[in-house]
Write a protein that binds this DNA or RNA. Structure first.
Lengths: 348, 348
DNA sequence: CTGAAAGCGCTAACAC
DNA sequence: GTGTTAGCGCTTTCAG
């Protein structure tokens, strides 16, 4: 019945192997692993010794089958966007992996057809491959949330339910408005008054939210915003041309941008016109990308607390999966501002 | 015995549900899924109809337990390196996820203690949570490969077995020397003759390999390399100061760098000295990072064919896991050069 | 070609 | 406290 578990044994030891070695029943070994307090101290010690000697670890598939849980959380990732400075998702993935590990979960990555927002979710759900999902692309109607909800699938969204504020699912988000307000206040404090905004097209809820932060900060000081805002696609060239137009027509002394990608476009325009970023015109981006960190001059940027997002996401997930289910309402986190040279000196 | 699988049913349908609905035995359903050719056409159709109606998909845990396979491949990821332009790993992850999906695999991400290169591997292996690993950090002795080999754990390395060329495990790598030779030839063709190298410390095998490409290209044209090379840490400031020293002491007209991070340092120095990158001094980096793509002037850079790496990795993995095991020797892929403005104009 | 039986390794429920 | 029994959902024999 038993097998000789040598160092190079190809099949790992099982519960039965440990039980035999420790001279107890299989159930006792199971208890030693899952409910150690149920065992008498000496039995526990004997079992643990056997476990250590054999290098036993419960077989995942068997445990999953029995407990109807995989301890896996599914995360769908999109292809990288080349030519932009966007890497939020990658930073988040790292944080999520770290945090889930501490909670006993692993992250299962899956790809989806770009056009099919639901692809991948369904299969994993029906085959009970994951315990829960982390949904990240919550822009544009967020069909995943609605769909997952209807399937009673546990999930936590990174991103608010913009289209449906009454949605009851768990979510974690970063307050983009607060971030842009922070950025704008920072420039206002330096003495700027004509601060322009370059953001995304109006159908982006995230973009409008970030814009609101700039708008709010300007109005709080009684400064006009008319003619100072531009909404374009999230590309470097769009940012560049938007900056050109704004400089010509509104003569801003500073720019706040919805992304580092757009901010890079602004930097390009400044250079072309012989303006020194920071000294002549201040620029702040959003996302604290690697680009912001290594470019010259360093690009001040709003940084999302992704580590904290991951912590809250996992916390919410544990609530969802726990017994009893602990409802976790939405959590809104505040970003910080990484100040670099593109903010320029004090102008007062 | 059976359950009513309504739309909102919380437990997915099982083989038994499908069997009952189709009026066949459970085994027949299993065959319909795994060996369709064994069934008579009409039976198959009836079963498939039932499968479709119920939205049946085999339970992963049960299948995994039975087949002793998880269809998961483990990939350990390191925390992001902020302040650098390195994002190769993230790009590779995306490619790997895409490619594995086509092969029927999902990617399981796990974190490891920075100091403990083996952490995480052992647990996943012993709990049979993954079928194979993709090992990426093969620099510095690569203890994972040796260890995984000794445990007879299937794995494919992205990176050559530098320290042990006779290692027999499967690996895929990108020819860094060829990439740097490409970059150097590109500059030579433009008319440069004093081309400097900024690379990593001598204990980096990857760094020495890349350097060899530069060296080879120079010598192929009978050009001297003495005094033109510098080896530093992989940071922007190191690249910057190395560039300064080289400019002072060796008067190069172009730089080839082991990374975009170092190349960014060079760009900083050029700007400080009023030299125009591209026009006055050419620069080529390595990795085609987002930074290279959005910075001004665009940074020419050697691009690793990570999509292709992923394809080869998965191919090797399928060989390892297939029956019979098909040995897959090492595969060395050639990078390409992304030419941007930092290469400068033709000088002839 | 289809069905019946067995068992992968584990844990929940119950007896002792 | 510890052992016995049963079964999670699937696939792999082996009969019919």
């Amino acid at each position: 019945m038993s097998r000789i578990p040598g160092r190079l044994s190809t099949t790992p030891p099982t519960l039965a192997d440990v039980a035999e070695r420790a001279g107890v029943s299989r159930q006792t070994v199971s208890n030693a692993v899952n409910n150690p307090d149920l065992l008498r101290a000496d039995t526990l010690a004997r079992v643990q010794e056997a476990i250590a000697e054999l290098g036993y670890l419960p077989n995942r598939a068997a445990r999953n089958l029995r407990t109807r849980a995989s301890h896996l959380i599914g995360l769908r990732i999109q292809p990288v966007q080349e030519g932009t400075a966007n890497a939020t998702m990658d930073r988040f993935v790292h944080s999520l992996v770290e945090t889930s590990r501490e909670a006993g979960y692993h992250v299962l990555l899956f790809a989806g057809e770009p056009g099919e927002p639901l692809a991948g979710y369904d299969d994993l759900l029906r085959s009970t491959a994951v315990d829960a999902f982390v949904v990240t692309d919550t822009y544009l109607g967020n069909p995943q949330a609605t769909w997952l909800d209807s399937r009673r699938a546990p999930f936590v969204a990174f991103g608010r339910p913009w289209e449906n504020p009454s949605a009851t699912h768990a979510w974690v988000d970063v307050d983009g408005a607060a971030g842009c307000q922070l950025a704008t206040d920072h420039l206002l404090d330096k003495g700027h008054e004509r601060i322009a905004w370059i953001g995304w097209r109006k159908d982006s809820r995230i973009g409008e939210d970030r814009r609101a932060g700039w708008h709010r900060a300007m109005h709080a000081r009684g400064l006009p915003t008319t003619g100072l805002a531009s909404r374009v696609e999230d590309t470097v060239v769009s940012g560049r041309s938007a900056a050109g137009v704004l400089l010509d027509e509104a003569r801003p002394t500073a720019f706040v941008c919805a992304s580092d990608t757009l901010a890079m476009g602004v930097l390009h325009t400044l250079h072309e016109r012989g303006l020194r970023a920071g000294d002549d015109v201040a620029v702040v981006g959003f996302d604290d990308s690697q680009v912001a960190q290594v470019v010259r001059p360093g690009l001040s940027s709003v940084r999302q607390p992704l580590e904290q997002v991951a912590v809250e996401v996992v916390k919410a997930m544990e609530g969802l999966l726990g017994h009893p289910r602990v409802a976790h309402p939405g959590v809104l986190l505040t970003p910080s501002l990484e100040v670099r040279d593109s903010s320029g000196p004090d102008r007062r």
